[in-house]
């Protein structure tokens, strides 16, 4: 479904991505792990067209490298950026409505379902989203992207800075997304959720993929964990 070959990206002169190769199949849950600053966010931004990519990126048989991000979104690639960028002046409901790409088509996710799944969001449906807690904002950004009915959703560090209980809830939502047949690329630093729900994992180091395998294989490979993951 998504096929990335020899992806390079630069910020000014600094060469951040130095040939990333990865692929995600339909319905698959894949995690992208790595320490701070190795280029995980840059990878998803380059796929999404927010950082100019060099190399080839194929999504559902179309070459999307360098397309503007709104076109990529319309092809069915969803993106939940880091930092929980909700629209604070808009209500929770309006934030969700903005995610809808085609109002005529009923997708896998309906606004009512979302509010039912998250009573906290339902209670604040018509208040400004700016007042939500960090965990609620994270749920809202994920739900907002889901409203567009993506076939693959890339989620960048959804659990960063959240309390363990909320991390658990984010994990449950991601598992639910997978259960409904949506492919996921999860960018994470913590191993907990990634190990629990992923079919495959990539580990990134210095702008390259340094490991690819199943959770069991990563568990068995102490060398990789020590060199590229543990602090």
């Amino acid at each position: 479904m998504l096929e990335v070959r020899d992806l390079h990206a630069y910020y000014g002169k600094s060469h951040i991505l130095q040939g990333v190769d990865m692929h995600i199949d339909a319905g698959e849950v894949v995690s992208l792990l790595g320490r701070n600053g190795v280029g995980r966010s840059t990878t998803v931004k380059a796929i999404m067209g927010e950082v100019p990519p060099q190399g080839s990126i194929w999504f559902k048989g179309a070459d999307i490298a360098g397309l503007p991000s709104y076109r990529i979104a319309h092809l069915g690639l969803g993106y939940v950026p880091e930092h929980r960028d909700i629209f604070p002046g808009l209500t929770v409901r309006q934030n969700l409505m903005l995610g809808i790409k085609d109002p005529r088509r009923a997708g896998k996710w309906r606004l009512e379902d979302m509010l039912e799944m998250f009573p906290n969001l339902a209670a604040r449906a018509d208040t400004a989203a700016g007042v939500l807690s960090g965990g609620e904002k994270q749920m809202l950004t994920i739900c907002r992207t889901l409203m567009g009915d993506p076939e693959l959703v890339m989620i960048d560090e959804p659990t960063e800075g959240l309390a363990p209980l909320i991390v658990q809830q984010v994990g449950d939502l991601i598992a639910e997304i997978a259960r409904r047949g949506v492919a996921i690329l999860l960018v994470e630093q913590k191993l907990s959720i990634a190990m629990r729900i992923s079919h495959r994992l990539y580990v990134m180091g210095h702008g390259r993929i340094v490991f690819e395998g199943t959770p069991a294989e990563l568990k068995a490979n102490a060398a990789v964990r020590q060199e590229w993951l543990e602090v």
Binding site: Y70, F87, G89, Q94, L98, P103, T145, G148
Partner: peptide
């Protein structure tokens, strides 16, 4: 939809674009 898209764009163009808003 257009009115909301306009407010979203005013606030954060990049996020708006990633949601499919031109």
């Amino acid at each position: 939809k257009y009115g909301l898209a306009m407010r979203a764009t005013a606030f954060n163009q990049q996020v708006a674009q990633s949601l499919g808003i031109s």
